[in-house]
Write a protein that binds this DNA or RNA. Structure first.
Length: 409
DNA sequence: TAGCATGATTCAGG
DNA sequence: CCTGAATCATGCTA
């Protein structure tokens, strides 16, 4: 009899432990997936580095797992307030329940935190994308756990049925076993929910803390800003309109444009020598642009109506029509822009181009001399000279929607 | 990983 | 309120 009893499959409780171990590792695997999700495109924010990041798995998750392997089945009360909190949060964040299209409170908060303007749509969509990924992982894992729970229950039921041939097993016992299994799985599901909540919280904190999410602007954006800066070197203070235009072109916020110009002015002033090369680079670039514009304008002038005020293809600040260089041009060719708008435009662009070519041809390296963007714009005090004759006033080439150097200073 | 680059923030001054 | 200056925090690269 005893021998026969020993040949009976291992008691369900031992099997439970085995399954729980497997599921424990599954839980950690889920956590790792969340970590990968955060680490995919960029490194983790500072608060995630070091201990915090390790702690994510090493402390909370494992500690909880340890607890449930022994006590979970007996001590858990069905209406768990913790579980309810988790469910509510997941629902509020749009992770569980019907998909909200990312319109969670967190997304709104993220939008509000970064200025509330619409120009953070990139970050917003990024947030939504991450949230969707979390949602997907959550649902996949939840489904897996439910499936595993059902399979395991069926398996245990079969085992008990087999056992019932050798010993009497009451329906109550079967019910109890099923209850234990379900409680085990639900506690594991709770871990999944907790992990998901933590992932959402991390995501929120990342998007709410603007300072920690610094990212370099795109190359194109930097080029646009630099072009403006160097073509307005005598007065690199863009007006609100100009800032808005630049912000739009660069896909950044107006305050980011302001920051950029603030930093640029200071860093330029601090180390003019270092920026000389960059300045000349943009001068050459501007010259090429001007050449193309001149060619286009000449052609346009020949073929089209002469009443079209044209200062460039899209953004007037790309052309040297309102900047430093152009102001110099006008001082040299003070009366050259008399006449029609187009005539003036073409004339000034031709002059600009001529000037640029002359300058680049006779480029004199170093700080002094007559390099194209020599620091002559800075006055003796180290500040920019007053824009008493702002380009917007002197420039005949600017169209109505032109972005031009501001007059605010 | 150190050092530099760069975007953001803070604070004082006008 | 805007700006310059200093500083912080993060990104990038050798």
């Amino acid at each position: 009899m005893q021998l026969k009893q020993r040949s009976v499959p291992r008691p369900p409780s031992t099997r439970h432990c085995l399954v729980v171990r497997v599921l424990k590792s599954a839980c950690n695997w889920v956590m790792r997936r969340y970590l990968i999700l955060f680490d995919q495109n960029q490194s983790l924010p500072w608060c995630w580095r070091g201990n915090c990041r390790d702690g994510f798995i090493a402390t909370s998750s494992v500690r909880r797992t340890r607890g449930l392997s022994i006590r979970g089945a007996q001590e858990e009360d069905p209406p768990d307030p913790q579980l309810m909190r988790l469910d509510n949060m997941l629902l509020a964040e749009g992770v569980s329940g019907p998909e909200k299209g990312g319109g969670s409170a967190a997304a709104a908060a993220a939008a509000a935190a970064s200025g509330g303007s619409s120009d953070n749509s990139i970050e917003h969509s990024d947030y939504r994308a991450k949230l969707t990924q979390i949602r997907q992982i959550y649902h996949t894992e939840l489904e897996k756990y439910e499936q595993a729970c059902n399979e395991f229950t069926t398996h245990v039921m079969n085992l008990l049925r087999e056992q019932s041939r050798t010993r009497p097993i009451s329906p109550k016992e079967i019910e109890r076993m099923v209850g234990i299994i379900h409680r085990k799985f639900s506690s594991i599901q709770m871990q999944l929910k907790q992990s998901t909540c933590e992932a959402v919280m991390i995501l929120r904190s990342r998007f709410l803390d603007a300072r920690r999410k610094r990212r370099n602007f795109s190359k194109q954006a930097t080029e646009i800003l630099n072009e403006y800066f160097y073509s307005h070197l005598s007065n690199p203070y863009p007006s609100e309109e100009a800032k808005e235009e630049l912000a739009k072109k660069c896909s950044i916020t107006v305050s980011q444009v302001s920051n950029w110009f603030g930093n640029k002015r200071i860093r330029y002033k601090k180390n003019i020598g270092k920026f000389q090369e960059e300045a000349n680079l943009y001068a050459a670039k501007t010259a090429v642009t001007a050449a193309h514009a001149v060619a286009a304008a000449v052609q346009n002038n020949q073929t089209n109506s002469p009443t079209t005020p044209n200062s460039g293809s899209s953004g007037s600040f790309n052309l040297p029509n309102s900047g430093d260089m152009f102001m110099n041009m006008q001082s040299l060719n003070g009366d050259s822009y008399q006449g029609s708008q187009v005539g003036a435009n073409v004339q000034s662009q031709v002059d600009t181009l001529r000037h640029v070519i002359n300058q680049t041809g006779g480029y004199n390296d170093g700080l002094g001399g007559n390099s194209l963007y020599s620091p002559h714009n800075l006055n003796a005090n180290g500040g920019w000279q007053d824009a008493t004759t702002p380009s917007s006033v002197t420039s005949p080439t600017e169209g109505p929607g032109s972005v031009h150097s501001d007059t605010s200073n």
